[in-house]
Amino acid sequence: MRYETERTRRRGHADTATDTLARGLGIFSIALGIMEVAAPRTLARALGMKGQEGLIAGYGLREIATGIGILASKDPTPWIWGRVAGDALDLATLATALEGKNPKKENVGIAMAAVAGVTALDVYCAQTLSRESPHPLPPMQDYSDRTGFPRGVEQSRGAASDFEVPRDFRAPEAMRPYTQPDLPQRPMPSM
């Protein structure tokens, strides 16, 4: 059984796992972003990066924007590549905190390892998504013969015109203004 969803099929790939991973990364982005925006001072202190609170909060906004992009867009691929670029920026920024005699170097190392791990996931996800064709897959099953009409569609148009719409289901006469005199008319049942 092919397990495809509308989303994955629309992107031209029957791969739900990558789709779920992309969404997971989107949620992660937002969560991390909120943390950076809400507590830049705590983070700066933990990483020995005092004075860089503004930068951290700015990175937080970037994370939130990317996360929303991933979750809300039809095609998350460019946004995941955006995450990869962001990861590189994060690593470069963290690397500066390794210089000199930062007493929190150990924390910075841990943070860099974590970012590197997520970067690997981001790269994997972005590459897999990029391999998908940009064209939607054709319908999985061919239902073009499922008319429901044993006599065919054309024969069936108006076949139930013997049916009289019950009085309580009829539109009031005044609200049937569309039937133009030059069009073939079905006799209107008397009200």
């Binding site: 569609v153 139930a160 015109s161």
Partner: peptide, 20 residues
């Protein structure tokens, strides 16, 4: 269709449902 509408339009996003 049976009741004789001139034009019937179906709206969805699932390809095989639209095909049906």
């Amino acid at each position: 269709i049976l009741l004789g509408a001139k034009q019937v339009v179906a709206i969805d996003r699932i390809p095989e449902r639209l095909a049906m």
